[in-house]
Design a protein around this nucleic acid. Structure first.
Lengths: 217, 217
DNA sequence: ACCTGAACACCGTTCAAGT
DNA sequence: ACCTGAACACCGTTCAAGT
């Protein structure tokens, strides 16, 4: 029971705890578990064990499990926004940029299905949320509103209420993402790609700035 | 320790168990809990207690909790299909019927959000499912495909691949339902109604049988 | 401040046993 | 066949205690 440091089962620096930034490490470990085995399989005990801390250390940084998931969701919206903005800006901020945005959205959702589900599925209740979550979510949506506003200004999209138009576009894209993620398209990647193409065409027609052909009276 | 029947803690008929159809009672009780407090709050012990049976009685009828949820989901698709078909048939099997179908879909999802989430959320894994689930799900989707096929035949919708077209329409409607259910439209009912109206207009334009106006060269 | 270990009140599921 | 009670191996969370 002397302080011979060779016999300690786990090496720990004296006077310093495990992490410089345990909060950050907890979010990253949670995300790692979620991406590899799904959010349902996430246990706080497992996260603590993987990081070499006690299973209650987490409560110094998060009120409860939901607060940790809210932080993970918030991180997701930040990444999603970055992907959307990149697609838009790297492709000319016009029609091509808009379609690149849609492709980036689906690539994110399909590439990180478990993360995407934490962002939208009801893992995070409507009650007390991460203060940043609402902000990040609004910010990602804002990128879409901005793009549509620009398209409208340049005569490339119908001059409707931009917020309403953005919600419609979001619903279409979100709906496709969810169907693909949930495996409702039994053809797999092939069918998903075909649906993406078809949806892009129909959306172009639906948002076309040109007046709809006169009804046959 | 004699068999005085007055001292028994719970009255039970001799020679008869609790239910004529425990399986059915379990599904209905599970649905009751889900609709009132959400699927996350569903516990097998609670279901058993509410029905006055032991918490393991359930395993005579379902392999596990997921199998019970699959049965609940299957029931949901049956109800959804009935609502869709009614909207279509009671409104003339034309454009009006098609829009009534969409309205019925959203009414079902928004009226039974927890049930809807069990049908689509990842409560039921892609692995072993209720044999009826896939069938019921396909059947509900089939109602949509049939309606679109009819519209195409009558020149009321673009003559695209009906399956692909149906998937697109489904994605739009599913996307709206999910955004509303998940509380992403902060305006509440007002905003949801406005989005529904706008989406119906855009969808009409997107599926219009008339050729799109010639592009400006 | 930050972390620990023990304890509490739950879960789903298994299993030997009863009728 | 259908149901039961005890037991097992988990959970998230709380709390007094350590440094």
């Amino acid at each position: 029971m002397t302080t011979t440091r060779a016999s300690r089962p786990r090496r720990k620096r004296a006077g310093q705890y495990h992490h410089g930034d345990l909060r950050r490490a907890l979010i990253e470990q949670a995300l790692r578990v979620i991406e590899s085995t799904g959010a349902e399989a996430l246990t706080l005990r497992g996260v603590g064990a993987a990081l070499g801390v006690s299973r209650t250390a987490l409560y110094r940084h998060f009120a409860d499990k939901e607060a940790l998931l809210a932080a993970v969701a918030s991180e997701g919206f930040r990444l999603l926004r970055a992907a959307l903005v990149e697609g838009w800006e790297q492709n000319g901020r016009g029609t091509a940029g808009f379609e690149a945005m849609g492709a980036a959205y689906l690539r994110f959702a399909i590439g990180h299905p478990a993360h995407y589900r934490v962002m939208f599925g009801r893992f995070v209740e409507s009650g007390v949320r991460d203060p940043g979550l609402e902000v990040e979510s609004e910010s990602a949506f804002g990128a879409l509103v901005d793009a549509l506003t620009t398209l409208q200004r340049d005569g490339l999209a119908r001059a409707d209420d931009a917020l309403l138009q953005a919600r419609f576009v979001w619903a279409v894209t979100h709906g496709i993402a969810m169907l693909v993620i949930d495996g409702q398209l039994r053809g797999g990647d092939e069918d998903a790609a075909a649906l993406n193409r078809y949806a892009a065409e129909r959306l172009r027609q639906a948002l076309s700035a040109e007046p709809a052909p006169a009804s046959p009276r």
